[in-house]
Amino acid sequence: MGFKLLSKLLVYLTASIMAIASPLAFSVDSSGEYPTVSEIPVGEVRLYQIADGVWSHIATQSFDGAVYPSNGLIVRDGDELLLIDTAWGAKNTAALLAEIEKQIGLPVTRAVSTHFHDDRVGGVDVLRAAGVATYASPSTRRLAEVEGNEIPTHSLEGLSSSGDAVRFGPVELFYPGAAHSTDNLIVYVPSASVLYGGCAIYELSRTSAGNVADADLAEWPTSIERIQQHYPEAQFVIPGHGLPGGLDLLKHTTNVVKAHTNRSVVE
């Protein structure tokens, strides 16, 4: 069995187990497998329904001669939608809004960016022009300005110390501490036991640490421990890039980060 097929099978099995364990909360999309990078042309966006009122959005972007996937989250909030992270750029984010209108038909009224990198804030200006209120932590807003990236308009308070959590509509926002970046936030959907790890969490097929220019490698494993301790009931975990899975993604990420750190020390 090929690795790609095995990865998709694991996603399907995880979703099936969740649907059985929580039949009222989960209505997993039966329309197909989780979209992969090879299936999404740059400039297009796919939506994948995880649970009743919960979707991931998947886009792709060219970077350094390669094409990478990027995940975000959409959560229903009454007759409105909360968006977590842009679709990595203005063109993708405009396509995301169009796809949401086509498939869901509810307005996106608020959006949260989970850290300051372009795959999370690139497209904020498109959201703002569409009347979406954009939010991020003060740290993310400051770092985005320093980096020359787009800056969300509103500040999220109460997320300055490791372990801080605040309720934001249908989700809980959690600051686990520094990891992929010093400002990275985690998003949890309690009604569906869905954990969105953003770039602080890796997919299972990833074996290298990737972009760690703004990471705190020493603190990252401790931050992941905080996530595990705060959300032990999480059933569906979405990484910032690639295929979702279960809580095993947290341990896998820790292993990859520690291996990278150990290699760096040896070198």
Results as ranks from 00 to 15, higher is better:
M1P: 02
F3T: 07
K4H: 06
K4D: 09
K4W: 04
L5M: 14
L6D: 12
S7W: 10
K8H: 06
K8E: 14
L9T: 14
L10R: 09
L10A: 10
V11T: 08
V11N: 09
Y12K: 15
L13H: 14
L13A: 14
T14Q: 07
T14W: 03
A15N: 08
S16I: 07
S16Q: 14
M18G: 14
A19W: 15
A19L: 15
I20C: 08
I20N: 14
I20W: 15
I20L: 11
A21Q: 14
S22K: 08
A25V: 12
A25D: 12
A25Q: 15
F26R: 14
F26K: 15
S27H: 12
S27Y: 10
S27F: 08
V28I: 14
V28L: 07
G32L: 10
E33Y: 07
Y34A: 15
P35N: 15
P35M: 15
P35H: 14
T36M: 14
T36C: 06
T36L: 08
I40L: 15
P41W: 08
V42E: 14
E44G: 15
V45G: 03
V45C: 01
V45D: 04
R46W: 10
R46E: 09
Y48S: 14
Y48D: 14
Q49N: 11
I50L: 07
I50S: 02
A51C: 04
D52G: 10
V54W: 03
V54S: 03
W55E: 00
W55A: 01
S56W: 15
S56R: 15
H57Q: 06
H57Y: 06
I58H: 15
A59Q: 15
T60I: 14
T60P: 04
T60D: 03
T60Q: 14
Q61P: 04
Q61H: 05
S62K: 06
S62F: 05
S62A: 09
F63N: 15
F63M: 14
D64N: 10
D64I: 07
G65D: 11
G65K: 09
V67C: 06
V67Y: 15
V67E: 15
Y68P: 03
Y68N: 08
Y68M: 09
Y68E: 15
P69A: 14
N71D: 04
L73T: 00
L73M: 15
I74H: 01
V75L: 05
V75W: 01
V75I: 08
R76T: 09
D77N: 08
D79Y: 09
E80M: 08
E80T: 10
L82M: 09
L82A: 04
L83T: 02
L83A: 05
I84S: 03
I84L: 13
I84Q: 00
D85T: 00
D85Q: 00
T86Q: 00
T86W: 00
T86Y: 04
W88G: 00
G89N: 03
G89D: 03
A90T: 11
A90M: 11
K91T: 15
K91Q: 15
N92S: 06
T93P: 01
T93Q: 00
A94Q: 14
A98H: 12
E99K: 13
I100G: 02
I100P: 00
I100K: 01
E101Q: 13
E101G: 12
Q103M: 14
I104Y: 01
G105T: 13
L106Y: 15
L106R: 12
P107H: 09
V108N: 02
T109Y: 08
R110Q: 14
R110M: 10
R110T: 11
R110K: 12
A111R: 04
V112L: 09
S113E: 03
T114M: 05
T114H: 01
H115L: 03
F116M: 06
H117N: 01
D118F: 04
D119K: 01
D119R: 00
R120M: 02
V121Y: 03
V121K: 00
G122D: 10
D125S: 09
V126N: 05
R128K: 12
R128E: 10
A129V: 10
A129T: 09
A129H: 10
A130R: 13
A130M: 14
G131Q: 09
G131Y: 06
G131C: 05
V132N: 01
A133V: 13
Y135R: 00
Y135I: 01
Y135T: 00
A136M: 04
S137R: 08
S137M: 14
S139V: 13
S139A: 13
S139Q: 14
T140D: 03
T140K: 05
R141T: 06
R141S: 05
R141I: 10
A144I: 08
A144L: 13
E145C: 07
V146E: 13
E147M: 14
E147V: 12
G148C: 04
N149Q: 14
N149R: 12
E150L: 02
I151S: 07
P152T: 04
T153D: 12
T153E: 13
H154V: 10
S155V: 14
S155N: 12
S155I: 13
S155P: 12
L156N: 01
E157M: 13
L159E: 03
L159T: 04
L159P: 06
L159Y: 05
L159W: 03
S161W: 11
S161M: 14
S162E: 14
G163R: 07
G163D: 10
D164E: 13
A165S: 14
A165K: 15
V166T: 11
R167C: 06
R167D: 12
G169N: 04
G169K: 04
P170Q: 09
P170N: 15
V171K: 00
E172G: 03
E172Y: 05
L173M: 07
L173I: 14
L173D: 03
L173K: 03
Y175R: 00
Y175M: 06
P176I: 03
P176D: 01
P176W: 01
A178D: 06
A179R: 02
T182D: 12
D183W: 00
N184Q: 03
L185N: 03
L185T: 04
V187M: 05
V189S: 03
V189G: 01
P190V: 08
P190T: 10
P190G: 10
S191P: 06
S191K: 11
V194M: 06
L195W: 00
Y196S: 00
Y196N: 03
G197D: 05
G197I: 01
G198Q: 04
G198R: 03
G198W: 05
C199R: 02
I201D: 05
Y202S: 15
L204Q: 13
S205E: 14
S205R: 07
T207L: 13
T207Q: 14
T207F: 09
S208D: 14
S208M: 12
S208Y: 08
A209Y: 04
A209R: 10
G210L: 05
V212Q: 10
V212G: 10
A213Y: 08
D216H: 08
A218C: 06
E219L: 08
E219M: 09
W220M: 01
W220E: 01
P221Y: 07
P221L: 11
T222G: 12
T222Q: 14
T222H: 14
S223P: 06
S223G: 03
I224Q: 01
E225S: 11
E225R: 13
I227E: 01
I227L: 09
Q228P: 06
Q228I: 09
Q229Y: 12
E233L: 11
E233K: 12
A234N: 02
Q235S: 10
V237P: 02
V237H: 01
I238A: 00
P239D: 01
G240E: 05
G240A: 05
H241M: 01
H241S: 00
L243V: 15
L243A: 15
G245H: 03
G245E: 01
G246R: 11
L247C: 06
D248K: 10
L249V: 04
H252R: 02
H252P: 02
T254Y: 12
N255Y: 09
N255V: 12
N255F: 10
V257S: 02
V257H: 04
V257M: 06
K258R: 12
K258F: 11
A259W: 09
H260K: 11
T261P: 11
T261M: 12
N262H: 10
N262I: 10
R263D: 15
S264F: 09
S264H: 14
S264I: 14
S264D: 12
S264M: 10
V265A: 12
V265W: 12
V266F: 13
